[in-house]
């Protein structure tokens, strides 16, 4: 492998991702299985939150993945705008619905968790509201992809939207803190804190986090393959019409 940019060639990407996908999917299934079963059935109940704490093994990883997907779209959009690699644009397109579903899962599990904890399904807390806005950003981004026929123009316009949207998303996040201080607990997992949670919760959480990460990777690879095949089909049809 001489350069990362080799994977910008759709053919190279197809062969490599085809080889990787079974492994990525397998690891995702394994990690998710271990993490969720361990987390749900073999950890003690929290002294304050009782068994409701166990939804944490789905809620936190999906929330992290929801943000990660947007960051990935941002990076892919930048690569497309700067280097015009088609695979990058298609990967951004492929990541959007996955990110949107993770956002929806984070919001949904949050509501289920919030009901017994805070006594309400929904609270206009800055963290929750930020995810709601992120959900709207995903919706708009996907709608723009769908609305533009020419795939290169669609890639350009969605990239511009993604770049501008990212700036506004960050501004919105801080505006929301200004707007309402909120109920949500602080970040459960962070790298700078000495210890966030006890080890017995931490290890299954790590598995679950890795599982969600690999699940995201597998879904994005699958969807990018589909997008590449769709473009290939388009090229073949055009070729046929020209000849």
């Amino acid at each position: 492998m001489s350069s990362l940019w080799e994977y910008a060639n759709p053919r190279k990407f197809m062969t490599t991702s085809a080889a990787l996908l079974p492994w990525v999917s397998g690891i995702a299934a394994l990690c998710l299985g271990v993490g969720l079963v361990w987390g749900f059935f073999f950890t003690p109940d929290d002294f304050r939150m009782g068994s409701t704490v166990k939804i944490f093994y789905v809620h936190v990883p999906s929330a992290i993945m929801a943000v990660n997907a947007w960051v990935m779209m941002l990076v892919c959009s930048l690569i497309w705008v700067i280097r015009r690699h088609h695979v990058s644009a298609l990967a951004a397109k492929a990541a959007a619905p996955v990110g949107m579903v993770f956002t929806a899962i984070a919001l949904f599990t949050g509501a289920i968790w919030g009901q017994p904890m805070w006594g309400t399904w929904w609270e206009w807390d800055p963290r929750l509201t930020a995810f709601l806005i992120l959900f709207l950003f995903y919706l708009g981004y996907m709608a723009l992809w769908e609305a533009i026929e020419n795939p290169d123009s669609a890639a350009d316009l969605t990239s511009v939207l993604c770049l501008v949207g990212s700036v506004f998303a960050v501004i919105s996040r801080y505006a929301l803190v200004f707007w309402n201080q909120g109920l949500h607990q602080g970040a459960t997992l962070s790298l700078d804190a000495e210890q966030n949670i006890a080890d017995e919760f931490w290890y299954p959480a790590l598995f679950s986090l890795a599982g969600f990460g690999f699940l995201f990777l597998a879904l994005v690879l699958y969807r990018t393959q589909t997008e590449i095949r769709a473009r290939r089909l388009k090229a073949l049809i055009a070729q046929e019409r020209m000849a």
Binding site: G140, L144, A147, A175
Partner: peptide, 22 residues
């Protein structure tokens, strides 16, 4: 962004309203 889209008014709202939040 939406000038090339036929009847893009609804799409325009969908794109612009989240940006209006701050």
């Amino acid at each position: 962004l939406t000038v090339g889209v036929k009847r893009g008014g609804l799409l325009l709202s969908l794109l612009v309203l989240p940006l209006y939040v701050p």
